[in-house]
Simulated scan of single mutants.
Amino acid sequence: MGRIICAGLGPGDPDLISVRSDRAIRAGRHIAYFRKAGRQGQARRIVEGMLAPGAVEHAMEYPVTTEIPFDSPDYNRALATFYDDWTERLAALVTAGQEVVVLCEGDPFFYGSFMHLYVRLKDRVPVEVIPGIPGMVGCWNATGQPITWGDDVLTVLMGTLPEDELTRHMQGSDALAIMKTGRNLPRVRRALAAAGRLQDAVLIERGTMPGQRVQPLAEVKGDDCPYFAIVLVHGHGRRPVAGGEE
Rank of each mutant, 00 (worst) to 15 (best):
L16E: 05
P162I: 07
V137D: 02
E245D: 06
R44G: 02
T65E: 03
V119Q: 10
T167N: 08
P134C: 08
V47D: 00
R44I: 00
D223L: 11
L121G: 09
E163S: 14
W140Q: 13
G182C: 10
G222N: 07
L157I: 11
Q40H: 09
M50G: 09
H30P: 01
R206H: 09
R3L: 01
Q199A: 08
D223M: 11
D152H: 03
W149Q: 14
L161F: 05
N76M: 07
L51K: 15
A78N: 12
V125I: 15
P73A: 06
R213D: 00
V137Q: 09
Y118K: 14
G211P: 11
A96E: 08
M170D: 02
V125F: 10
T208I: 09
P210V: 07
Q145R: 15
F114H: 13
A91M: 10
I133T: 12
I68Y: 13
A55I: 04
P69N: 07
P14L: 09
G211E: 04
E61G: 14
Y33S: 06
L176R: 06
A218Q: 06
G244R: 00
I230D: 02
S113V: 08
A7E: 04
D22V: 14
L121W: 10
R26I: 01
R45W: 01
G135I: 06
G112N: 11
L232T: 02
P63A: 09
Q42I: 10
L185H: 12
P69C: 08
R124S: 08
W86Q: 12
A142F: 02
L198S: 09
V188E: 00
M60G: 11
L9M: 06
R26Q: 05
K221N: 02
E61H: 14
R120G: 05
D13P: 05
F228G: 10
P226Y: 03
L198C: 05
Y111K: 12
G38D: 01
P14D: 04
F34T: 01
R29Y: 00
V129K: 14
A37M: 08
K180G: 05
Q212G: 10
L192Q: 09
W140H: 15
Y83D: 05
M115E: 04
Y75E: 07
N184F: 01
V188W: 05
M179E: 01
A195I: 08
A27T: 05
I31L: 06
A242H: 08
E99D: 13
G28T: 11
N184P: 07
D224K: 15
R124L: 08
V188F: 08
V125G: 13
L154Y: 00
A191R: 14
R35V: 03
V125N: 03
E205N: 14
M136L: 12
I46Y: 02
R23D: 00
V125W: 07
G211C: 10
G159C: 07
Q40I: 07
A191L: 03
G211Q: 10
